[in-house]
């Protein structure tokens, strides 16, 4: 047996002792030839995807696209690391559309004044979304906040504590008017200032309540 990678389509392999050219490509050509011409001309066929039927508006599905989407799917589904950390992620994330709220941030000034942001178990990224950044608490109206994560609020369910941690962003973050350099435990009605926005922290989970007590 002589394994050869197909030159036309880099993802095919075939036995060069049996076939002169790539049999998979041959099959696809035959498949294509049997299709209405209009579709065959603008649709790239992935090895395992069903042929698109009569819907010519369908997005082109290429081998590369489907492959990238699998990598992304895997990245979205998997957690690797410290058992206690992934437990926190897995138990609250799995199959739940709505993650249980553990506390809130309330904006008390600037463009977001009066708006509340829900906090969940584990890490809550605070900053401004856009340009490839996604954050949980999005101060999208405050342009004095750089894009990306500026601070992180962590709810740690074992000790039922909230921590405020600085991130690698370029916007200064203040906790009760003190510059945040590392991390600090936060309590009810503490003020967090990022850019021009001032946020007040309100805990829901505490000594008095925990989602774990409800199970």
């Amino acid at each position: 047996m002589k394994l050869v990678r197909c030159e036309v389509n880099g993802s095919h392999y075939y036995d060069a002792e049996k076939y002169e050219s790539c049999p998979h490509c041959q099959k696809e050509r035959e498949k294509k030839n049997n299709m209405p011409q209009k579709i065959a001309s603008d649709v790239t066929i992935s090895l395992f995807d069903d042929m698109p039927s009569d819907n010519t508006d369908k997005e082109t599905v290429s081998l590369e696209d489907s492959d990238n989407s699998l990598s992304k799917q895997i990245a979205d589904s998997s957690a690797s690391g410290n058992v206690e950390e992934i437990k926190t992620m897995a138990y609250y994330d799995f199959g739940q559309e709505q993650e249980p709220v553990v506390g809130w941030l309330v904006a008390i000034n600037s463009a977001a004044k009066g708006k509340s942001f829900s906090l969940k178990v584990g890490k809550n990224n605070i900053g401004r979304s856009g340009a490839g950044n996604i954050v949980d608490v999005d101060l999208d109206k405050d342009v004095t906040v750089s894009r990306g994560v500026q601070a992180v609020i962590i709810y740690e369910p074992k000790k039922r504590q909230f921590l405020l941690q600085s991130a690698n962003g370029s916007t200064l973050v203040y906790h009760n008017d003190d510059l945040l350099m590392n991390y600090i435990q936060i309590n009810a009605y503490d003020r967090i200032t990022i850019g021009e926005t001032e946020l007040v922290f309100i805990p829901f989970c505490s000594d008095k309540f925990s989602w774990e007590d409800q199970k």
């Binding site: 090895l47 395992f48 995807d49 069903d50 799917q73 895997i74 979205d76 589904s77 998997s78 957690a79 690797s80 690391g81 410290n82 058992v83 992934i86 992620m89 897995a90 994330d93 799995f94 199959g95």
Partner: peptide, 18 residues
């Protein structure tokens, strides 16, 4: 008490032929 593990935090949707 093992320290590290890998787990699916969300199920991964498989396709026919996978």
């Amino acid at each position: 008490g093992f320290e590290l593990a890998d787990i699916s935090i969300r199920p991964l949707a498989l396709l026919d032929g996978d």
